[in-house]
Design a protein around this nucleic acid. Structure first.
Lengths: 168, 168
DNA sequence: TCCAAACCCTTGGATGTCCTAGTATATTGC
DNA sequence: GCAATATACTAGGACATCCAAGGGTTTGGA
């Protein structure tokens, strides 16, 4: 999308913050901005790997979640909670996955309000293949050192917990 | 959007990865997934603070960038490069900011291809107020410890550099 | 000098996310 | 048992991001 900049724009922003007398929060601002940008880079990599499978990250996450469920099926609301996205986002993802025949919707046996999302055989195959690709092309070459990975898991885990993501 | 889960879904995913024989990349997978989720949480906080100003994060970033430019103006392509987003995203943001009278488009004095984005007086005021709000309500209460902030800046900075964001 | 290649911005389309209803089904409480 | 409340999913709308294409402007090499 663009060639490398001569200078780190986030470091520049941090300096600007300090210069304007906001030194107190300049570092957290830089850290948060860096998280936003890193997510953008990672998402682009992931989507690039998933594209050949006709998947996006949102759809992959749902597929992967289903593949780990014992029965290969989950209620929409459960998927929404576990993926931590809005219910309408799940509806959207399921619509597209269903068109691609990777999942099917089926009524819940006892609760008429609930819809189950079920992995098809092809869905399971694609999920497996996509995971293999992501493992080798993204997670296996993250560029983060082992210590940094551990640190990120701990720091961001604490953050997510404090934000109310989970109790544990 | 949902009440806290009883267990950390990312830690669960990491265990699933290990259980399926992908232990080698389970930790980086967890770290990357945590970054994605953290970004989502932070973005929601930021947008919540900006909403009263009629701004989104994308528009705020552009406004802030302009406010740090000496002349209060920048070519669209420069803004695109510095914000590291696609040119069409800048077009979109400028369209909306211009409707809100926070910026104006003006022709480049010497290059007929280029359009300058210029901050209006009101744009500068809103930028300042929004920044104050973000500083006190988000950056000042990030929840990250000082050491963790420094670590994040370093680790993510190295990552962004390796990804080709900047040379420095 | 002049035309092809490079560059800049915009339009149109595909996706994803969230929010705000609206419909249907369950549960609760009186 | 029935009305009121709570849940589950979906439709429609607002935004953001990217990609592919198209039209206008500059630049540079023949």
């Amino acid at each position: 999308m663009g060639s490398p900049l001569p200078r780190d724009p986030i470091a520049d922003a941090q300096r600007n913050w300090e210069r304007h007398g906001w030194g107190e929060v300049a570092a957290p601002m830089a850290a948060i901005t860096a998280i936003m940008r890193t997510q953008q880079i990672l998402l682009a990599r992931i989507e690039g790997v998933l594209k050949p499978f006709g998947l996006t990250f949102a759809r992959y996450e749902l597929l992967a979640l289903l593949s780990f469920a014992r029965s290969g099926a989950l209620p929409m609301n459960k998927a929404s909670a576990l993926l931590q996205v809005h219910p309408t986002s799940v509806t959207n993802a399921v619509d597209r996955l269903e068109k691609a025949a990777l999942v099917v919707r089926s009524p819940h046996p006892t609760d008429g309000r609930t819809t189950l999302i079920e992995l098809t055989a092809e869905g399971r195959t694609i999920a497996k293949r996509a995971t293999t690709a992501l493992n080798s092309e993204v997670f296996g070459q993250s560029g983060f050192g082992d210590d940094d990975v551990e640190h990120l898991i701990r720091v961001l885990g604490d953050f997510r917990k404090a934000a109310g993501d989970f109790t544990d």
